[in-house]
Design a protein around this nucleic acid. Structure first.
Length: 304
DNA sequence: TTCCAGGGGTAGA
DNA sequence: TCTACCCATGGA
């Protein structure tokens, strides 16, 4: 078991990042609320499954244990740290968002909490599958589908690595339907896996964040099963926060909170968050999180 | 039973 | 470009 200590930005809070959306509830993430440890199965540089355990013993420091034999080489340390950096968006500069929060009462708590980063996966491939699985279903069902897909990966310590595209392709559409309960989404995921395996779709530039906005949007929209709303969601995850992702939950929340119970149309929602400029997606999302999830659940991330 | 969830694909206009 | 219809699944 190797140990890594990672210094985090002063405006980073671990718990708000974990609770930034529902992905921590799906394998191969595993969250223990009592200990504050987020476990995640990742792959080492050779592609073999490895268990990562992340916690924040004190603000500014992330403690990461890596379940591998022996000591980590400097390269391996950098590699695992880069995975953590991607998953927790440690490289993302959100100072502009926090400055904006300080000017709005309902967001004013967020900078002190260190909120503003969204939990990500080690690979875009996994994020795309999760996004497809989460369309047109209630969230608990999406959690089930995603976790069942994770179950196709190589086992390690009672968990599974996220299956590579080739492994999903090998499992086949029927298994995705029957075992993973993906229904009509199964062929979309098979097609995506096939495009990656045959080299038609290269996700590596996306993982490195090298694809320009317009191109990235076009690329997401070109994947079957991913439409406008999911594309906007993936764009936000990729750090393009100047555009909302308006899904059914947004209509419901904004209608209830800002339109006296009347369902607004998309343009009304856009106008409402337009003043938040390049940060409007985060302004909406963290408002929503605070009101509908964190506060009702009694979360106060400053206590840790 | 019917509705619908953290939508999207497709055919037809 | 817009609209109607269809798509598995499972909880309410």
């Amino acid at each position: 078991m190797a140990r890594l200590r990672i210094r985090t930005p002063a405006d980073f809070g671990f718990l708000p990042a974990v609770y930034s959306h529902g992905w921590f509830q799906c394998a191969p993430f595993h969250w223990e609320q009592e200990t504050g440890i987020l476990t995640r199965v990742v792959r080492d540089e050779g592609g073999l499954p490895a268990l990562l355990r992340m916690s924040e013993p004190a603000r500014g420091t992330l403690e990461v244990t890596v379940g591998v034999e022996g000591r980590l080489s400097p390269d391996a340390r950098r590699y695992f740290a880069s995975l953590v950096t991607r998953m927790l968006q440690l490289e993302r500069d959100i100072s502009g968002f926090h400055a904006l929060c300080r000017r709005h009462d309902h967001l004013a708590l967020l900078p002190a909490l260190g909120a503003g980063r969204l939990l990500r996966c080690p690979t875009p491939w996994e994020e795309l599958v999760r996004a497809i699985a989460a369309t047109n279903v209630a969230w608990p069902q999406a959690v089930r589908m995603i976790s069942l897909v994770a179950g196709l990966g190589e086992p390690i310590d009672g968990m599974h690595a996220w299956p590579a595209p080739g492994r999903v392709l090998e499992a086949g559409e029927e298994k995705l339907r029957e075992r993973c309960r993906l229904g009509y989404r199964a062929p979309y995921i098979i097609e995506l896996a096939a495009r990656i395996v045959n080299g038609e779709l290269d996700l590596e530039p996306i993982r490195r964040g090298e694809v320009p906005d317009d191109e990235l949007r076009k690329l997401f929209l070109g994947i079957k099963g991913i439409g406008p709303a999911t594309t906007d969601y993936l764009m936000i995850l990729s750090g393009r926060t100047d555009r909302l992702s308006i899904d059914s939950a947004v209509y419901a929340y904004v209608g209830e909170t800002h339109f006296g119970g009347e369902r607004p149309d998309a343009e009304q929602i856009e106008r409402l968050y337009e003043p938040f400029g390049q940060w409007r997606a985060l302004a909406f999302w963290f408002e929503f999180l605070q009101e509908k999830w964190w506060r009702p659940a009694g979360f106060d991330f400053r206590e840790r």
